[in-house]
């Protein structure tokens, strides 16, 4: 009797906790973020390599002018389906600072696969100075650093609108339905056919937003596929083991009951 009631109250408590936590996370966001279908959602979800490569192209050609990607190295691009030679070639397009050399001076050299993506600005102050006082955040963890990150990123990039009547935008601000407070310093980053996809995909704004969201989701957690794969095996293993333990327990206790 008591035990059963205890169970139900615990369950209700768990639901209440999760509601409390999620509502706490959602606080401050006026608009609900619409959910999209993603190839990487669910416990069997994986990344779509084509989508990742297109998203990388969008990052490279559009975002990287202002946003760094500090925690991703060129070698990580192997996850996107590039081979070693391609990765070397991609890395070589970038210059990184190295040194000091024997004369004590820092010098630039072509990037190697082991290097991380160079940041567009040397420091936060330089970034602010070039962006009207606003700091373009690092994008490596963007999909995890925002609640419901992937859906939020897609919504943000496709959420630019003309401000509704009566709303006066501050200097240099843009109106975005999904940004907290609706006024965002970043101008609409994506344009129709803003990039030229190698695989012939039509580069609509929605398509680019989708691709770069997938890319940034991967960048937030490059090990996601390994995590889910190991997770499925672990849970299956534990299910079988627990059934065996249950049968053992029943047998051991048979003499007592």
């Amino acid at each position: 009797m008591g035990a059963r009631a205890f169970f139900w109250v615990t369950m209700v408590a768990a639901v209440a906790f999760s509601d409390g936590i999620s509502s706490a996370k959602a606080a401050g966001k006026a608009v609900d973020i619409p959910s999209q279908e993603w190839s990487f959602q669910g416990i069997f979800g994986t990344f779509d390599r084509g989508e990742l490569q297109r998203g990388f192209q969008v990052y490279k050609e559009v975002c990287s002018g202002c946003h760094s990607l500090n925690y991703i190295a060129f070698r990580n691009l192997v996850d996107l389906g590039f081979n070693e030679i391609e990765i070397k070639a991609i890395a070589a397009e970038y210059e990184v600072e190295d040194g000091p050399n024997d004369d004590g001076e820092m010098y630039s050299r072509a990037a190697l696969p082991s290097d991380r993506f160079p940041a567009p600005f040397p420091n936060a102050n330089a970034a602010r100075a070039s962006n009207g006082g606003a700091l373009p955040p690092d994008l490596s963890l963007m999909a995890e650093a925002r609640s419901d990150g992937s859906n939020y990123l897609f919504a943000l990039m496709t959420g630019y609108r003309d401000p509704p009547a009566g709303i006066v935008l501050a200097e240099g601000m843009n109106y975005n339905v999904y940004f907290s407070g609706h006024q965002i310093a970043m101008a609409m980053p994506l344009a129709e056919d803003g990039v030229d996809y190698a695989d012939g995909t039509k580069a609509t704004v929605a398509q680019q937003a989708r691709d770069v969201t997938a890319f940034l989701t991967w960048a937030s957690e490059p090990n996601m596929e390994q995590r889910k794969r190991i997770g499925v095996m672990t849970v299956l293993f534990l299910l079988i083991m627990t059934v065996l333990l249950y049968v053992s327990k029943r047998r051991v206790w048979a003499a007592v009951h």
């Binding site: 995590r227 190991i230 997770g231 672990t234 534990l238 083991m241 627990t242 249950y246």
Partner: peptide, 13 residues
């Protein structure tokens, strides 16, 4: 065993 199933589901998924 029961605990680890729930725990693993959260850790991995």
């Amino acid at each position: 065993g029961v605990f680890l199933i729930i725990f693993s589901a959260v850790v991995f998924f």
